[in-house]
Design a protein around this nucleic acid. Structure first.
Length: 299
DNA sequence: ATCCAGGATACCT
DNA sequence: AGGTATCATGGA
């Protein structure tokens, strides 16, 4: 039986959402996701659920284009967190000059809700790396182990696109193959983490129902996953609103804005402060501090 | 060349 | 418990 023409050559479908205060560029560039590529027309091209997707900022919100019927528009809206109550999150921040300045500097910055494994693997590779290098590592992993993703025939610049490889695929890669993707000492960590997820030793979906402390504990049983990486996954993929990764930039921001700028506080001090100061949406506040420190007076 | 990067780990006091 | 060397790679 011949396949339907629409399956062989699916057409581009478009959807639009009305949403206020959504800075798509800041959101996709702010170091929470590593796979979005900027296009010359201001849109962003990427892959969701194994399928090509393009995102546009438009006058009163966001628009998206897909090829055929996937990814589902529901999954796109979930990924972008279009329905979340953004003003309520900002209102929950501490009423203080620091957070007011941070929000003023990057209003419209949002948190995504990413697929679990992709987010975990990405941040497992992120340790002691610059964002630009993390992007390169992830791109190499997808090119080596992902499946080819169909893109519209109409694309002027034919770009090759691959899906993000699942844990089953990463687990069967050799350590040297992973090192060839510039993972360095992270290669055996990622391979072992993939194996444990693929074989069901760690149930990523099951972590959704845990409280924050238990979820941290479970993720940190994986090699290469410590407190910072775990909180990135818990915030950017699971959506735990109080997860609050402290990396070098956030530590710098906390020190300069809340502590003695000349004497670095211990990580324990920063952790205690984080847990009592930023309220029910501390993770969101963290993303503002991170971006604020990087764009306004960082290097 | 030297320092550092969305850190984690093993190994020390 | 709390500091420190080390890890692989490449940007600034």
């Amino acid at each position: 039986m011949l396949p339907l023409l629409s399956d062989v050559n699916p057409s581009v479908e478009r959807m639009q959402w009305s949403v206020a205060e959504y800075d798509l560029a800041a959101t996709l560039e702010s170091g929470q996701a590593f796979r979005w590529l900027p296009c010359s027309d201001g849109s962003w091209a990427g892959v969701l659920d194994g399928h090509w997707l393009r995102l546009y900022p438009v006058a009163d919100g966001l628009a998206a284009e897909r090829l055929g019927s996937r990814p589902s528009w529901d999954s796109v809206a979930e990924y972008l967190q279009i329905q979340m109550d953004y003003p309520a999150v900002l209102a929950s921040f501490p009423q203080e000059p620091v957070m007011e300045s941070a929000v003023a500097a990057c209003r419209g910055l949002r948190l995504l809700r990413q697929p679990l494994w992709e987010c975990l693997a990405g941040f497992l590779c992120s340790s002691n790396k610059q964002i630009i290098q993390i992007r390169a590592m992830i791109a190499a992993l997808c090119r080596q182990f992902g499946d080819p993703v169909r893109v519209p025939n109409s694309l002027s610049v034919k770009q090759e696109v691959w899906s993000f490889p699942g844990p089953e695929r990463i687990a069967t890669a050799t350590e040297n193959e992973l090192r060839a993707c510039k993972l360095g000492y992270r290669a055996p960590y990622l391979r072992e983490a993939a194996r444990r997820v693929a074989e069901g030793e760690l149930d990523l979906e099951g972590i959704r129902s845990l409280n924050l402390a238990s979820a941290r504990e479970r993720l940190q049983t994986l090699p290469g996953v410590g407190p910072k990486v775990a909180d990135c996954v818990l915030l950017f993929a699971y959506g735990f609103p109080r997860a609050f990764p402290i990396d070098v930039w956030v530590a710098r921001a906390l020190q300069e804005l809340y502590f003695n700028p000349d004497k670095p506080p211990t990580l324990k001090t920063l952790t205690a402060f984080r847990d009592q100061h930023f309220g029910p949406n501390a993770g969101y506040a963290q993303q503002y501090l991170f971006h604020y420190r990087r764009v306004s007076y960082g290097k």
